[in-house]
């Protein structure tokens, strides 16, 4: 086994991990801001992917068209989900979140089956440009784009939360909604904003993932579990943690699939996850 090959595996893993971070960032934001786990997150990604498919088939548009459209559409979906559903289930116990968002997931997943049919859709693979070789390692254009955007989106979200006044108001609401209200912040507006941002990030993720992945109504299931593990591993409320966790999972997955066997890669990822929680119950970069 050559070093180049091993390096190629690691690079593939890092790119994959950046993509994981990209489609986890929305989930991470919602979880951190509101302590809500969105079980329909995978379906949000799926709808972002269908947006890219539709934009391509209807008007021949690549990611430059589909990314902003998906951001707007899924962002709107996030706001709608917040006002019509999430706002109300937050009054109930934590279980209501699972109940409500799981119902939403089924609704969206099979609504997509109804509208788009069961067939697998793919985008032409030269939509983002061809792969290139750098230092003996192959880079696939669409993955590099998705990975880079994943990195940028995560860092921007992090900066927004930590460096801007909107961000500090959002954090204030997440820490104590009543106290924030007394200071003149409208919690519902901040929370709706969080859902809009999360939806937009998720839509962008979906539109980019669609450039190198297949799209089908059930694809969200495949992606959602990865996103859950990524966010939990990264730690509650830490967008940056999700990035680190995504990269870690990507590399662990690639290396274990290559060195041990692809069947065991999930086992190893889950085992690493449970082990990390054993030593750090708050995740890699979470605060208690």
């Amino acid at each position: 086994m050559t070093t180049t090959l091993l390096l190629q595996v690691v690079v593939s893993g890092l790119l994959l991990g950046a993509v994981y971070a990209l489609f986890s960032s929305g989930l991470s934001l919602i979880w951190g801001m509101m302590n809500v786990v969105n079980f329909a997150h995978g379906e949000f990604v799926m709808l972002g992917m269908y947006t890219a498919v539709v934009v391509w088939t209807a008007m021949g548009g690549g990611p430059w068209a589909s990314v902003p459209i998906a951001a707007i559409l899924i962002g709107t979906l996030g706001v709608l989900a917040y006002f019509l559903l999430v706002r109300h289930i937050m009054r109930g116990p934590m279980l209501a979140q699972i109940l409500g968002t799981f119902g939403l997931a089924l609704f969206l997943r099979y609504g997509a089956l109804w509208v788009f049919g069961a067939n697998f859709k793919t985008l032409p693979d030269d939509l983002v440009g061809h792969s290139f070789i750098l230092g003996g390692i192959r880079f696939e254009g669409s993955r590099v784009l998705a990975g880079a955007v994943g990195f940028i989106v995560t860092v921007l979200l992090h900066l927004l939360l930590t460096r801007t006044s909107v961000g500090s108001r959002m954090l204030a609401v997440s820490e104590d909604a009543t106290a924030a209200q007394l200071m003149g912040i409208r919690p519902q507006r901040m929370q709706a904003l969080a859902w809009a941002l999360a939806g937009a990030a998720t839509g962008i993720a979906g539109a980019l993932v669609a450039t190198f992945f297949y799209t089908s109504p059930t694809v969200g299931e495949t992606l959602a579990i990865v996103a859950f593990v990524t966010v939990a591993l990264g730690g509650f409320g830490s967008v940056l943690g999700a990035l680190v966790a995504g990269l870690l999972i990507g590399v662990v997955e690639s290396l274990s699939a290559f060195l041990i066997g692809p069947v065991y890669k999930d086992v190893i990822v889950y085992a690493v996850f449970v082990l990390v929680l054993w030593f750090r119950p708050q995740g890699l970069m979470g605060t208690t």
Binding site: L84, L85, G100, G103, L106
Partner: peptide, 12 residues
């Protein structure tokens, strides 16, 4: 899914 959502919405 829709029925679950409606129940969760009104009776969390």
């Amino acid at each position: 899914g829709a029925i679950i959502v409606i129940i969760a919405r009104f009776l969390p």
